[in-house]
Design a protein around this nucleic acid. Structure first.
Length: 321
DNA sequence: GGAACACCGCCTATTTGTAG
DNA sequence: CTACAAATAGGCGGTGTTCC
């Protein structure tokens, strides 16, 4: 198995109401990648600049970040051809993608879709090294910058940041510093493509949590009526769990619940409902091991909303008098 | 500047529960 | 049954972080 550490640079519309902004918010202008063997040793590199055709003028922020000028980009290749060379380069043997952050494979596929190029086989599993960094440092909600992680592992800053090949290279060195045993159990999946039907839905199990990606539905309401979406299975033994707190909304995009496994204890559930490019809705459900304190926090969260509403109503009522 | 994410709060409409 | 309160659902905006 090879690992393709991928990094993209992209550009966007310089003027606000460009008619392509909806279907292609970001146009890829550089592909950089490092190929690693099983031992996370660098065995090859890939780097090509792409000439933008949708947004030929570089946005001032993209310019500042990457250093590219519009003239530089004119020297680049046409996306479909560069991509073809890239994918040929990738496929010298079986491989998995690795990226810093969750966006690259989504934007890559959005660009492929724009050119009607067949997408990757779905589901597309990959390693989000930025997420792995958060997990192994016990700060799962935090997203650290690449430079932060480079400093954390005391990696020498030999090259500038924010160029595709150098960022891929830094990400590869971070992976080597982390080691395979920390990274390999923590793969994730890109959701630019959602499961087509019930048989394609995605179930992933980890040490202390699990993740499920549903197929799409016409409305968020229908997502939250589906029994598979609502079910809670133990992230360790997969047993169907009884809920201590049934799914409740936090008045935002998330739902929460509390379930209990008689062998593995409390698990907090979270459903995030997302909308895709075609205005269809799907669920990302996560079950995470927790303790009685975590359970208490969820109970707290649950009653907090009703409490707030109550006081709000009282205030409103007294203000009306 | 645009997108994604997490977290927070405010506002409204509808459904559900309860007292008279 | 009505009338009101409570609970629920969902939209929207703001903050602060990352990516480019």
């Amino acid at each position: 198995m090879n690992y393709i550490v991928l990094d993209l640079e992209w550009n966007q519309a310089a003027n606000k109401k460009n008619r392509y902004a909806k279907i292609l918010p970001f146009e890829i202008i550089e592909i950089g990648a490092v190929k690693l063997n099983d031992g996370f040793q660098i065995i090859d590199t890939f780097q090509e600049v792409i000439r933008p055709v949708v947004y030929p003028k570089i946005h001032h922020i993209s310019r500042e970040v990457t250093g590219f000028t519009s003239a530089d980009l004119q020297q680049g290749g046409h996306f479909p051809e560069v991509l073809k060379r890239f994918l040929t380069w990738c496929s010298s043997s079986e491989y998995r993608f690795c990226t810093w952050g969750p966006l690259d494979l989504t934007e890559l596929q959005r660009n492929m879709n724009y050119y009607k190029i067949p997408l990757f086989p779905s589901p597309l599993f990959f390693y989000d090294i930025q997420e792995v960094f958060s997990i192994i440092n016990g700060e799962s909600a935090n997203r650290r910058s690449l430079e932060y992680a480079v400093e954390f592992y005391e990696i020498e800053k030999k090259k500038d940041f924010h160029r595709a090949l150098s960022d891929a290279y830094y990400t590869a060195l971070i992976m080597a510093a982390m080691g395979a045993e920390k990274i390999l159990p923590n793969d994730t999946v890109d959701t630019y493509q959602q499961p087509a039907g019930p048989d394609d839905e995605i179930y992933m199990r980890y040490d202390t949590h699990s993740r499920y990606i549903s197929r799409t539905f016409p409305s968020r309401h229908e997502v939250m009526e589906n029994s598979e979406v609502l079910s809670t299975r133990c992230c360790i033994c997969d047993r169907r769990l009884r809920k201590k707190l049934r799914w409740f909304s936090d008045n935002s995009k998330n739902y929460y619940c509390l379930a209990f496994c008689k062998n593995h204890g409390y698990q907090s559930g979270k459903i995030h409902i997302k909308k895709n490019d075609k205005e269809r809705y799907y669920a990302i459900k996560e079950l995470t091991m927790t303790d009685s304190e975590g359970a208490a926090a969820l109970y707290e969260k649950r009653v907090d909303y009703t409490k707030k509403h109550r006081t709000k109503r009282r205030q409103k009522a007294s203000a009306a008098k």
